[in-house]
């Protein structure tokens, strides 16, 4: 039991990231409110970034910005995940903006952000 506990404590960031991922994933699938869906998407993406960042962390080292001209690999953490997180964040911002624009457009037309109501209204409109 203590062994498992210490394992859990050691991997706490990864475990927490995956729990968050599950929360985001489930809400993205099941929420009917579109704004909540967008929030869920952001939770999901942030959890992936947390996981990514935790892959690059190394105990007791500094952020990868050269200080005093010291370029020793044992001084800094892994810079690659940080760079990938940057890229990922920009992608996620763009997708959120696009998603929000879609929702705003639908809200203007149907005055609601509940997706099931929108589907019913859209079906009615198409039948006319």
């Amino acid at each position: 039991m203590p062994a498992l506990l210490s394992e859990i404590i050691n991997y706490r960031f990864e475990i927490f990231a995956f729990l968050l991922f599950g929360i985001g994933f489930m809400n993205l699938l099941l929420q009917k409110n579109l704004i909540k869906k967008i929030i869920a998407f952001n939770v999901m993406d942030s959890s992936v970034f947390l996981f990514l960042a935790s892959q690059g962390f190394i105990d007791g080292r500094a952020a990868p910005i050269v200080v005093d001209g010291v370029t020793d690999v044992h001084r800094y953490i892994n810079p690659i995940p940080s760079g990938l997180v940057l890229t990922g964040i920009v992608v996620s911002v763009s997708v959120s903006a696009f998603f929000l624009a879609l929702v705003q457009r639908l809200y203007k037309r149907y005055k609601t952000v509940e997706f099931d109501e929108i589907m019913v209204l859209a079906k009615k409109e198409a039948e006319k």
């Binding site: 394992e7 050691n10 991997y11 706490r12 960031f13 990864e14 475990i15 995956f18 935790s54 892959q55 690059g56 962390f57 190394i58 105990d59 990868p64 050269v66 001209g69 370029t71 020793d72 690999v73 044992h74 001084r75 800094y76 892994n78 810079p79 690659i80 995940p81």
Partner: peptide
């Protein structure tokens, strides 16, 4: 997760020659 490299370890597979060059020769 429990089968991944140890969190924060120095010798994880990700810390390889790629990182070494980025850090040491990047400047």
């Amino acid at each position: 997760v429990f089968h991944l490299p140890f969190f924060g370890a120095e010798n994880s597979p990700a810390a390889n020659e790629v990182v070494k060059r980025y850090v040491e020769k990047g400047l």
